[in-house]
Design a protein around this nucleic acid. Structure first.
Lengths: 99, 99
DNA sequence: GCGATACATGCACACTTGTTCATGTATTCG
DNA sequence: CGAATACATGAACAAGTGTGCATGTATCGC
């Protein structure tokens, strides 16, 4: 589990995953969108693929990557919320007493 | 955002956060529960505190740490789901065709 | 078949990062 | 006050990791 977070912890890798949020993307598209070299992109894709975060789909002579699971989408979305509205809802379970 | 994921990406740090999921914990308790030295625990707590993932509360002569935000709780919960039932709900938006 | 395009992989290196040891600071009790 | 407990911090080092370069493999068009 820590390994999964760690994978999302690299800026380029996170950008790669973000690039795949809106649907399948080829390696070339990802590389361009992320602004990384093809080699680097492929290296990272390998890690993300091995960790089952992304899944490859052959499409002709290019390979397109997709989120392997929707949980990932949720995780990222929630984290975005956290960054945007840090304390939108600070208490959620049961903590009746407070200063 | 990548930095947040990166912080959760270290096993010890993740354990620390997990230890705080069920409520405030003192540094000593965390160190013991995680199985790390006091120094190491404090170092990690510093990072988590700086990143606004955890928040310290003075309680007498000990300091207790709490989740700063419930989004974090959600992120972790979702990630747990992902690990437990990888493909519980693979499609969430619109992808009608499958093998 | 051959060349070209699109992607993957191995290696090497610089740099970050987790950990430990030692020391510093704050709070409580006598 | 001083001693003790609980936590924080600084320096230093080993180990992991992201990146670039070069090269390897697969698919499409000719």
């Amino acid at each position: 589990m820590a390994e999964l977070f760690s994978l999302l912890g690299d800026p380029n890798r996170l950008r790669i995953v973000l690039a795949c949020l809106d649907g399948p993307r080829s390696v070339g598209e990802i590389a361009e969108e992320v602004g990384a070299s093809q080699s680097l992109t492929s290296h990272h894709l390998r890690l993300l693929r091995t960790a089952r975060l992304l899944r490859p789909e052959r499409a002709g002579r290019s390979v397109r990557y997709v989120l392997d699971d929707d949980h990932v989408r949720d995780v990222i979305r929630t984290m975005v919320s956290h960054v945007c509205d840090p304390h939108e809802h600070r208490d959620g379970e049961a903590r009746p007493d407070h200063p």
